[in-house]
């Protein structure tokens, strides 16, 4: 199949590639760039496991094509922190916000995007923001607690 050239930024690095037009952003990140931290739980836009940030907004990477990310700035879980953990990741760790870990990259990035926009969300706002990310292990409560704790950590750091 014919390919199309694309250029974009992924985790701060310029990327140039040739992709088939039908390849999703998720598959491009995982298969072409080897960024397998982005997970696929449904491939039809419901579970949120594939969430990445595109120009700062949380996006389901299974629902958009790689070619649609032309010129975009993409952040995946691998790019969230340098060495060590970002405060959101730390908070998930401290509050047992993960079990099998499969939903975790998507959850962490969704939480990060929320806190960028709303630095001190209420519990209800946190639950609303996470409602598009399914987790089958935790029952969500510890994730909500972790996001609140992350908000406090980030506020303290400012």
């Amino acid at each position: 199949m014919a390919t199309v050239p694309i250029t974009l930024t992924v985790n701060g690095q310029a990327v140039r590639a040739e992709v088939e037009p039908r390849v999703t952003l998720a598959d491009f990140l995982r298969d072409e760039l080897g960024l397998t931290g982005t997970k696929l739980g449904c491939e039809h836009g419901v579970c949120g496991a594939c969430t990445v940030l595109v120009d700062g907004a949380a996006v389901r990477s299974c629902l958009i094509l790689a070619v649609q990310a032309e010129g975009a700035d993409v952040l995946t879980i691998e790019g969230l922190a340098g060495d060590g953990l970002h405060p959101v990741q730390e908070a998930f760790w401290e509050h047992h916000g993960l079990q099998c870990g499969f939903c975790t990259p998507g959850m962490v990035l969704t939480a990060y995007a929320l806190l960028q926009e709303r630095p001190s969300p209420s519990e209800e706002e946190i639950r609303e923001a996470l409602a598009g990310n399914l987790c089958r292990c935790t029952g969500y409560q510890n994730i909500v607690v972790a996001v609140r704790a992350a908000a406090e950590k980030l506020a303290g750091a400012r």
Partner: peptide, 21 residues
């Protein structure tokens, strides 16, 4: 005790079946 396995899940380094190439 905090889980010792967590950092690799939090950073996306953990390899599930689909991630093995």
């Amino acid at each position: 005790v905090k889980r010792v396995e967590d950092p690799r899940f939090l950073t996306g380094e953990a390899k599930y079946l689909a991630d093995i190439v």
